Simulated scan of single mutants.
Amino acid sequence: MQNLLKLIFPPQCASCGALVDAPHGLCGACWRDTPFLIGLVCDLCGAPLPGEDGETPEICDDCLTIERPWDRGRAALAYRDTARRLVLALKHGDRLDLVPATVGWLHRAAAPLLSDGPLVVPVPVHWRRRIARRYNQAALLANALARRSGCAVEPRALIRSRATPIQDGLGLDARFANVHGTIGPHPVHGARMAGANVLLVDDVMTSGATLGAAAEAARAAGAASVSVAVLARAVKDA
């Protein structure tokens, strides 16, 4: 049956639609154009760093100057080229088929954060935005990552109490002010974070303002530790 389905619906590249050998993969050209973050990366946000990966954690310039209310962080991709197209397609283009394709990359990047069996929690969106998009892409990624890693997941642990303007085009200070106080623990489901090692999941990290607000909410709920994992990280000179 599987062979018959492959003949009728041959697997296509998740990015450009070209035929590929296996489902949920990329063709050679798109693979070469996808900026995977490997090697030495910032231990707080996953941004690439010069040098070789070693045992001592390294921190990027941004994370040295911006307070991060979480303990560790990783990202699978740099937010450009094919990675940017995939993230935008998942976020705004109803490309839910991209979740199986991208969660493997996220799982590989987040491996150092999964060893203590964290509670996986997605960064929430306001209910009006969720109705408009029909889903929260961070929740889809969080659920898929939890299944793949065998970790527990609580998609309702955090809530967004106030809708905020889109962050695009805002400066650093405005981004942090825009999301300040907008995310909090759910009055019922947030209790699952008490004493837990929480892993926050989102699609993109730019300034880290939204993840910071979510991390502060997780700590307010009593999380023992907070880490973050994102599909893509906006990086300088990338």
Rank of each mutant, 00 (worst) to 15 (best):
residue 1 M to F: 14
residue 3 N to D: 11
residue 3 N to L: 09
residue 6 K to V: 08
residue 8 I to W: 08
residue 11 P to N: 05
residue 11 P to M: 02
residue 12 Q to G: 08
residue 23 P to F: 08
residue 24 H to M: 07
residue 25 G to L: 04
residue 25 G to T: 13
residue 26 L to Y: 09
residue 26 L to C: 15
residue 28 G to H: 15
residue 29 A to C: 08
residue 31 W to A: 09
residue 33 D to S: 11
residue 33 D to M: 12
residue 34 T to I: 08
residue 37 L to N: 00
residue 38 I to E: 10
residue 40 L to K: 08
residue 40 L to N: 03
residue 42 C to G: 15
residue 43 D to A: 09
residue 43 D to C: 14
residue 47 A to R: 03
residue 48 P to M: 07
residue 48 P to N: 05
residue 50 P to L: 12
residue 52 E to A: 15
residue 53 D to A: 11
residue 54 G to L: 13
residue 59 I to C: 07
residue 59 I to N: 01
residue 61 D to V: 12
residue 65 T to K: 14
residue 66 I to V: 15
residue 72 R to S: 07
residue 73 G to H: 04
residue 75 A to L: 11
residue 75 A to D: 00
residue 75 A to C: 13
residue 76 A to C: 12
residue 77 L to C: 07
residue 77 L to H: 01
residue 79 Y to F: 10
residue 88 L to N: 05
residue 91 K to E: 02
residue 92 H to I: 04
residue 92 H to F: 09
residue 93 G to T: 06
residue 97 D to F: 04
residue 98 L to E: 02
residue 100 P to T: 09
residue 101 A to I: 06
residue 104 G to P: 05
residue 108 R to S: 13
residue 115 S to V: 15
residue 115 S to K: 09
residue 116 D to Y: 13
residue 122 P to V: 13
residue 123 V to K: 02
residue 124 P to Y: 15
residue 126 H to T: 10
residue 127 W to A: 10
residue 131 I to K: 15
residue 133 R to V: 05
residue 136 N to F: 10
residue 136 N to M: 06
residue 136 N to Q: 10
residue 136 N to D: 11
residue 137 Q to C: 15
residue 138 A to I: 06
residue 139 A to R: 04
residue 139 A to I: 03
residue 140 L to E: 12
residue 140 L to D: 02
residue 141 L to R: 01
residue 142 A to I: 05
residue 142 A to P: 03
residue 144 A to P: 00
residue 145 L to Q: 06
residue 147 R to I: 04
residue 148 R to L: 11
residue 148 R to A: 06
residue 150 G to F: 01
residue 150 G to L: 03
residue 155 P to M: 06
residue 157 A to P: 03
residue 159 I to N: 03
residue 159 I to T: 09
residue 160 R to F: 05
residue 162 R to G: 13
residue 162 R to E: 13
residue 164 T to M: 09
residue 167 Q to N: 14
residue 168 D to L: 09
residue 169 G to V: 10
residue 172 L to C: 10
residue 173 D to G: 09
residue 175 R to Q: 14
residue 177 A to F: 14
residue 179 V to W: 01
residue 188 V to D: 11
residue 188 V to L: 14
residue 189 H to N: 07
residue 190 G to W: 00
residue 190 G to R: 01
residue 194 A to T: 15
residue 194 A to S: 13
residue 195 G to M: 10
residue 196 A to P: 10
residue 199 L to V: 12
residue 200 L to S: 08
residue 200 L to Q: 02
residue 200 L to Y: 04
residue 207 S to M: 15
residue 212 G to S: 14
residue 215 A to S: 14
residue 221 A to V: 07
residue 223 A to I: 01
residue 224 A to Y: 04
residue 226 V to G: 00
residue 226 V to H: 00
residue 228 V to A: 05
residue 228 V to S: 00
residue 228 V to R: 00
residue 229 A to V: 04
residue 230 V to M: 03
residue 230 V to C: 03
residue 230 V to G: 00
residue 235 V to E: 00
residue 236 K to D: 03
